[in-house]
Design a protein around this nucleic acid. Sequence first.
DNA 1: GCCGTTTTCGGCCCGACTGTTTTCAGTCG
Length: 574
Amino acid sequence: MARPNEEVEGLLQEYADLIAITGGDAFKARAYEKAARAIGGHPVDISRLDAEGLREIPHVGRSIADKVVEYLRTGSVSAVEERRSKIPAGVRALTAIPTLGPKKALRLYEDLHISSVDELAAAIEADALHDLKGFGAKTQENILHGITLLRQAGGRIPLHVAMRDAEDIVGELSAVKGCRRCAYAGSLRRMRETIGDIDVLVAAARSGPFMDALAGLPSTAEVIAHGAKKTSVRTAQGIQVDLRVLPPDSWGAGLVYFTGSKAHNIRIRTIAVRQGLKLSEYGLFDAESEESVASRTEEDVYERLGLPWIPPTLREDRGEIEAALGGELPEVVTERDIRGDLHTHTDLTDGLASLETMVQAAAERGYAYFAVTDHAPGLAMQRMTDEKILAQREQVRALDGVHRGMRLLHGTELNIGPKGEVDWPDEFLAGFDLCVASVHSHFDLGRAAMTRRFVRVCENPHIQIIGHPTTRLVGKRPPVDADWDEVFAACARTGTALEVNAQPDRLDLCDEEILRAREYGVKFAVNTDAHCVPHLACLRFGVGTAQRGWLTAKDVVNTWPLSRLRRFLRKGGA
DNA sequence: GCCGTTTTCGGCCCGACTGTTTTCAGTCG
């Protein structure tokens, strides 16, 4: 994984924020933001590049290239340190509150010396903002609501952040001598959208070297507990990591024990007890003789309980035990089932990579087909025109089948207006191979209007997929309010697929809504909404979410062969 | 700070929404 790219992306974004907060040149701040995104989305590990190589990345010029080189060489950038010394970190944290930007954050800091979210919440409670300019009753209410949203994430970590750290740690521990098996478990293996802490398991005869290795990792900031069976540390970013080292014979039982949700584990332990057995992280034992009857693999443990192996993403006690007992466990969709991505962007709008680069990267993933769906004119900031999208269509046709025979579909991501209207008239839409339509504005229409809006989209014969349907952002923005049962019914009736957007801050639809929609017979598309090459790999998070929603390949249109997909895209037409 | 079928300066994503400072600043996508 390209860690340095992400580190530098974060650093440059922070610098941009600090410029904005201190009232610096807005265009300069934006220049840093653009460079941050470009580096984060750059497919080559930047630590392998020199200043010249760095400057070939779009939006990276002499000044930023020098700062990146300084960072790679010394681990910090003096210009950033200088700004940091002027603005406490908590002031920047304030801008994470929806509706509170850099200007308001600075005012709060300068006038009231508020430098953390907690201090701000306390100040509002104490009515300390009453004569602060620009902070009327409504603004304070909005800020409090924003703080509530932030806190609902409850200090949990986004899935992809935890995944990256867990894979690094698994990589390090796997290299320790004597390691027989190493894997992450817990909610991360179940692919929950946020993660409380990271659970790592090792199978080895001796535990000491692994405990020491974890405690000694560069990413470890604090050792919370250091024992023979369990070690807990906190990383520099504040993430808790629990390591358990098990005897190799206990590997399967340990994985079962540390992967299942609490509710799932209670259910399978109950099943064990009824059979005169006892289940722990060390194995499945005869309750009387205490003799081990299964423990080496997860399959062994489940089989001895009379169950088939249950995919980790289903282990939530949401009916998977009953389904397993009845032989009706779904064969959930896997990453290998996905034949193509149906929602992606290029640098024609807000993507980072050219059409050619995106197509080539998609072909390297082994896709049979791939859709390019840049933004339509309704999203004014993208400045799309008829001419530009038609010119792109020519380029798409020219590249069709060129890379490993991969077929290309030319599409667009339409903007859904408040009444369900979209950017282009029917005649123009008919020229696309597929249209994704998404809500990007008017989030607070009220349930009835929002429902009508979606139903009208479903009834549009040229729209085959609703993109990120609820528009929620994990821990940041709640889903829009609609009568989803009515929307799901309309999707099923009209043959409109719902997207499972794989961007880790969206994961939209989420698992629970997928479970509901599935009951209506709705079809789904697991798409990355990629804006750069590395985003294509986010597919795994979308597939994990689809699995949590019990979807099989039959439910997911982009697992289908192209001929069948094309029939679906005609939406009941000829 | 970056960029150039505008080529070393002068632009840079544009428009809508919201609350409030009643004429517009701040925020967002």
